[in-house]
Simulated assay, not measured.
Amino acid sequence: MTAWPGAVRRVEPHLPVLLAATVAAATWASATGGLGVRSPLPTAVILLLALATGASVLPSRRWVLPAVAAVCWLVLAAWAAVVVASWRAGTGLRGRQLAAYLLGTFPVMLAGMAVGSVMGGERRLVMATPGNAVVFYAWLVIAPAIVGLWIRARRDALAALRDRAERLEREQEARADRVRADERARIAREMHDVVAHRVSLMVVHAGALEVTTADPATVETAGLIRSTGRAALTDLREVLGVLRQERPLPAPGWDTVDDLVRESRAAGLRVSRTDEGTPGPVPDAVARTVHRVVQEGLTNARKHAPDAAVDVCLRHLADGVEVSVRNEPSDSAGPVLPGAGLGLVGLRERVELTGGRLTAGPTPGGGFLLRALVPSGEAS
């Protein structure tokens, strides 16, 4: 059963040629007496007419096949082309056109009866008697047309069902999109209510501390907290905009890596940056991934080795970018910052989605190395 659809697909392109060959063979058999009344015409003429009849079945103008079928019925008493013409009329013609075809077959049938009467013999017995003429008309014209109408009705019903299924699928996708949009909006509201409120309070308190304190170090720290909080609010607004409007995040460029280094230095981290190769244009997903790798590496260094030297290195390759963040061993772990421990897991998934790879682990000297190779091909 599984091989049947494949066989149908292989044969389907050749169906017109097969039908033409079948009609030509049936016309020959009918005119030579094998499947009908033997014609007195020469064999060469019968063969030529049979080939012409088969050729008329191939895709051509709509009137060609009915005209050839009428000639074959009157000259050869051949029935194959009449059957195919009536079947095609049922499948392809509608309304007045179908009625005109059926009415046009009456004169042909009457002319066939007249030809049979003139020729006499077996031709007269088969075609000229009223009973046989009615039977031939029913089997050669009406029955194939009814079959064609049934096929057309079934085809139209299947097309309507297909359209309905596609419409329902589109409506289901639209409902799913609306549900996703509502859920994204709800998440955006939750994030705004929970995170933005607390970050805003942090920025306000840091600004108040910056104004009221007299200690220069405290003023500097409060200013750093205030500027960092404002940057966090800006990033949060971008994320909320993505959730609400489903627009893409702005793609960070190479200059944003400098911003990360500058922010870490302002926070007291000893960071150096080196570049190897010549920077070139890369897809947005690659630049965003490089940005996130550097961001995660510097965040981990601030958490676990705040007094250690950190080196950020970008190697611009012909087929991608290799980014590494290495920190030296730390003498003091400093205050423990809260974290879920899933940063590297999510970062590895992000890098692998671009077709790259990420490694992270301690170095022989006691430090830590985060390295990612991000290909510059089109990312997912």
Rank of each mutant, 00 (worst) to 15 (best):
R247I: 10
V147D: 02
H291T: 05
I142Q: 04
Q97L: 10
I146R: 05
A70E: 07
A340D: 15
M202L: 15
V37S: 08
R94Q: 13
S227Y: 02
I151T: 12
I46Y: 03
T228C: 09
V108F: 11
V84Q: 10
A318Y: 01
V239R: 15
V37H: 02
V239L: 12
L373T: 14
E246K: 09
A165E: 04
R237N: 13
V37C: 06
L347M: 12
E171P: 01
L209K: 00
E322R: 15
S39D: 08
E12Y: 07
A165Q: 04
P216E: 12
R167Y: 06
L260I: 09
R10N: 01
V82M: 13
A379C: 08
W79V: 03
A285N: 03
G339N: 12
L158I: 06
V108K: 13
A222Y: 12
S380M: 04
T363P: 06
L201F: 00
R94M: 08
E220T: 11
D163M: 10
A181N: 08
Q172Y: 07
G241R: 14
T354Y: 00
M119E: 14
S332P: 00
S39P: 09
E12D: 08
G229D: 11
P335I: 09
G54F: 07
S380T: 11
H291E: 05
P13S: 07
V310G: 10
R38T: 14
A89D: 06
F106R: 02
Y137H: 15
V141M: 09
T299G: 11
L342Q: 12
